[in-house]
Simulated scan of single mutants.
Amino acid sequence: MKKINFLLLLAIGLLAGTQSFAQMAVDKGTKFVNLGIGVGGYSYFTGSGLGLNAALDVGVAKNITVGGILGYRGYGNGVTSFDIGARGSYHFNEILNLSTDKADLYAGLGISYYRLSYGDTYLRSIGIADSYGTTYIPIHIGGRYFFSETLGGFAELGSSLATLKLGLTLKL
């Protein structure tokens, strides 16, 4: 947990310390697409497997986006999981008075359906379910940094299939 807190503070410090002329505007109609990989997690299989994830965020009001998330993770030996849901985020650029139009800091929560499948024929043969599904409320905090007007990178900490997600982000 100390490592995650340190990384979060470092990312905020680096993003807040950049200099430019204006803040990134997140208004109605602004669209972001995140595509990335994820590591870490909160289950028995935490240390294994690499997750793939995608998220779409659409501005519905000043500094507020809503959208969807989709994730998949394979752990080996036929064990897989997926996550699908909706989320909302608040973008802190204005409150933090960021002096750059390249950075976007946000946090939020959502509602998701999570399914874990064991793929174990032995479990089925003795009458035990080989999959598990549940609905939960994931939280997330993240940041984006744009290298150009439309392409950037993102990092996100959260409580979904992966604790840490990293990847590319597109502003449409």
Rank of each mutant, 00 (worst) to 15 (best):
L7R: 02
A11N: 04
A11H: 00
G13D: 00
G13T: 00
L14A: 00
L14C: 06
L14R: 01
A16L: 00
Q19T: 11
Q23H: 06
M24W: 01
D27H: 09
D27F: 03
K28E: 14
K28R: 15
G29Q: 09
G29L: 10
K31S: 08
K31E: 11
L35V: 15
G38M: 09
G40C: 12
Y44T: 09
F45D: 07
T46V: 00
G51F: 08
G51Q: 03
A54P: 07
A55V: 04
L56Y: 11
D57Q: 13
G59R: 01
V60K: 11
A61Y: 11
K62D: 15
K62T: 13
N63G: 03
N63K: 14
I64W: 15
I64A: 04
T65P: 07
T65W: 06
V66R: 04
I69V: 15
L70R: 03
G71D: 07
G71T: 08
Y72K: 05
G74P: 09
G74K: 10
G74A: 12
Y75N: 04
Y75A: 06
G78E: 08
D83Q: 08
I84W: 10
I84L: 14
A86Q: 05
R87P: 02
H91P: 10
E94W: 01
E94F: 02
I95Y: 09
L98S: 00
S99R: 12
S99Y: 02
T100V: 03
T100P: 08
T100A: 01
D101C: 05
K102Y: 04
K102T: 01
A103M: 01
L105R: 00
A107G: 15
A107Y: 06
A107Q: 03
I111S: 10
S112K: 04
S112N: 14
Y114E: 07
Y114D: 08
S117I: 01
S117H: 03
G119E: 09
T121Q: 02
Y122C: 01
Y122F: 15
L123P: 05
G127F: 06
I128H: 04
A129T: 11
A129R: 14
D130G: 02
Y132F: 15
Y132N: 13
G133A: 14
G133F: 12
T134K: 11
T134Y: 02
Y136Q: 13
Y136A: 09
P138G: 10
P138K: 10
H140G: 02
I141G: 10
I141Y: 05
I141P: 01
